[in-house]
């Protein structure tokens, strides 16, 4: 740097001397040429500074764009994603409630039918063994007719409830789509954050927190392949507990 300055200083001195000498000689053409040279030298320096400024402007603009994108994500997309995820909870809860309601209605029906069928089957067996009086048979015949009549609408109900259970499974598709969209957003946020970190010039390593260290706060279900220190199934839980004297 100092060397360069010294050189440009010497260059200028030389040019000044040449200019004075030319003017003293009355050589106007040479004098003009020297003046042009001095101007070019100034221009070159100006260009260098301009280049530097342009680069700075470009960097600033790029980081500003990254900032703007992050701001947009923070202001709109993330709250939006939060609402979407909440809706996933609602969807799954609705599906579970529909299914459980159907079950509540179906189970007693099935149990009732089962009990009736068992009792009728026993009596029918008795009839086939010819161990039934005519009076008993008449009652059985009446009971059978009533049962067959009753069973039909019950089957209708069962079919309708089963259909509800079937339809309730659509939550998987809907919530899957919503979650996929949120995954896309998370990806965008990640990219923007990485850019921002890059522009802010911090090249510090990304630290991964140790999942097994520290608190016992609940974290919800483990995800295969993601959560470390997890127990895979009930058998492993039982093994661990029995190793602890349970």
């Amino acid at each position: 740097m100092v060397q360069m300055e010294t050189r440009s200083l010497e260059q200028r001195l030389e040019q000044a001397r040449a200019l004075v000498a030319a003017l003293e000689r009355g050589d106007v053409a040479t004098a003009d040429r020297v003046v042009d040279e001095i101007g070019r030298l100034r221009e070159k320096q100006l260009f260098q500074e301009l280049c530097q400024l342009t680069r700075q402007l470009h960097d600033a603009l790029a980081s500003f764009l990254a900032d703007a994108q992050l701001a947009e994500l923070a202001a709109n997309d993330i709250p939006d994603a939060r609402e979407r995820l909440r809706y996933v909870i609602t969807l799954t809860e609705q599906a579970a409630t529909t299914t459980l309601n159907a079950l509540d209605e179906m189970l007693p029906l099935v149990e009732g039918l089962e009990a009736k069928i068992q009792s009728l089957a026993g009596r029918w067996g008795k009839f086939l063994q010819r161990e039934m009086s005519y009076r008993e048979f008449r009652t059985l015949s009446g009971d059978l007719a009533t049962f067959l009549q009753d069973a039909s609408p019950k089957m209708e109900t069962l079919r309708a409830r089963l259909h509800e259970v079937l339809m309730a499974q659509s939550f998987q598709d809907l919530s899957g789509q919503i979650i996929r969209r949120v995954i896309g957003l998370v990806q965008q946020v990640e990219t923007s954050l990485v850019e921002l970190i890059r522009f802010s010039g911090q090249k510090g390593e990304l630290r991964h927190p140790n999942p097994t260290s520290g608190d016992l706060a609940g974290r919800g279900p483990s995800v295969p392949g993601l959560d470390k220190g997890q127990i895979a199934n009930q058998d492993e839980v039982d093994d661990l507990l029995s190793s602890l004297g349970f």
């Binding site: 097994t212 127990i231 602890l244």
Partner: peptide, 12 residues
């Protein structure tokens, strides 16, 4: 759903 080894030990 909590299935970390240290959690199960803590519960025990």
């Amino acid at each position: 759903a909590e299935a970390r080894r240290d959690q199960i030990v803590a519960a025990a």
